[in-house]
Design a protein around this nucleic acid. Sequence first.
DNA 1: TTCATTTTGTAACATATGATACATTTTGCT
DNA 2: AGCAAAATGTATCATATGTTACAAAATGAA
Lengths: 247, 247
Amino acid sequence: MLQNENYNTDLIEPCNDECSFCFLNYTDVLGKNSLFRGLSKGEIGEIIRSVHHQSKAYSKGEVVANEGDNYDRLILIVKGAVVGEMMDFEGKVLRVEQRSAPETVAIAFIFGNNNRLPVTITAVEETRLLFIPRDDLVKLFSGNKIVLSNFLDNMADRAQFLSRHLRMLGLHSIRGKIAHYLLEQVKLQGSTDIRMPHTQAALSEMFGVARPSVARVLRDMNNASIIESRGKNIRIINTEELSTMLS
Amino acid sequence: MLQNENYNTDLIEPCNDECSFCFLNYTDVLGKNSLFRGLSKGEIGEIIRSVHHQSKAYSKGEVVANEGDNYDRLILIVKGAVVGEMMDFEGKVLRVEQRSAPETVAIAFIFGNNNRLPVTITAVEETRLLFIPRDDLVKLFSGNKIVLSNFLDNMADRAQFLSRHLRMLGLHSIRGKIAHYLLEQVKLQGSTDIRMPHTQAALSEMFGVARPSVARVLRDMNNASIIESRGKNIRIINTEELSTMLS
DNA sequence: TTCATTTTGTAACATATGATACATTTTGCT
DNA sequence: AGCAAAATGTATCATATGTTACAAAATGAA
């Protein structure tokens, strides 16, 4: 198992008072992070300046943190994207979520009585993360009701996401999962002509199924004239039929 | 679908200043709720007295709230137990969790941008619940750092639970799920001679599988001399073999 | 103790999905 | 444009699981 050599568990030293790197480079993207919604750039800059924090770059494929690691800090994505995955010892992967700048990472697990990371976090492209330790978060909450409120909203949104994922995994067959995914993409892309943003391998990891089984279901939907697919490009022909697969 | 006739969405009127019913009857059980860990009974009584709240009784089988309902209050179980389940339109059920006094209910979903209940909550025995609206919670947090800290821990614990459930549903076959359950019961009951606290029907709903399939896997484990089962009474014979099913 | 209800056990068959292997097509980099 | 790597497509067979029905055993209430 990869050792956590990049994820320092020691207290993070703050940048110096003139840390122009963080202030100048990150307040723009942090301003778009829902944790700071309702705050001005000046206020965000003041927050970054006043808390311990660390900025670190990761290359594509590099592990940020491992499943089971102690998790007691806030991670903000200021550039790039990461994926969170659960794995068993036989190499099977359950891909939970990909998060991109300017979002947070695994915000729901910072507190609690057994706050260990339930997923392995890996950079999927050149990525830069900003770390803020939990104690500094708590202080921040004391002094800033807006950040606390935003934090509670963020945690709740993550719990909602986990519940939806739970529902999809526990109530649907492969066909139901794929139908759900396609309908969601139709909604997101605003058209019945969509291009899947995930490979079939990624879909199989999201749904906990075998990759050739995903291909087979897509082919069967083709043959049943429910969709018309060419690789990642898919035209939905029978939206209602897809919907009935979700019942 | 059952109408939500018992779950008033109007602002909850507080008990009067001499609400002996709540103070005398509930501070004992509330004192055992992790939300109030670190507080004295006097402090808890003062909290209950100062927030809007409502107490309501439910009979066995009565629906407390439906999946999809707006969810903007704290529910504390002062007596009895409830179950949270997801359902599709064909009657398939995914049982997420049963919660008992003195625990909270669905604490992770009170805040957020789309705070709808992801489960239907039903009383599984004679049950009494205490409701506190979200706005009063927010005020409580302002004045009490301990309750805020406990609340964040509670939310994080629920997120951990959802993640473990997600992992179990997404990475394991039926055999893996049952093996996991049996090993967990061994741990909880402190013996390899256990009595399943759930019926096979309940297990099938927890795992999202068919009830006769649960029976078949248990029989197969019997035949393979991994367990020795008589109804709900199970003796684990080959703990290592069960463990390998979780890899 | 009795009895109705609930739970468990099981069979038979159908369907779904996994596993493995490999060919073909697409994509991204140089 | 070319080429290597990644992704998709597909076949075949095995295994897992669902469905339906019904019998037997266990449980809880009277």
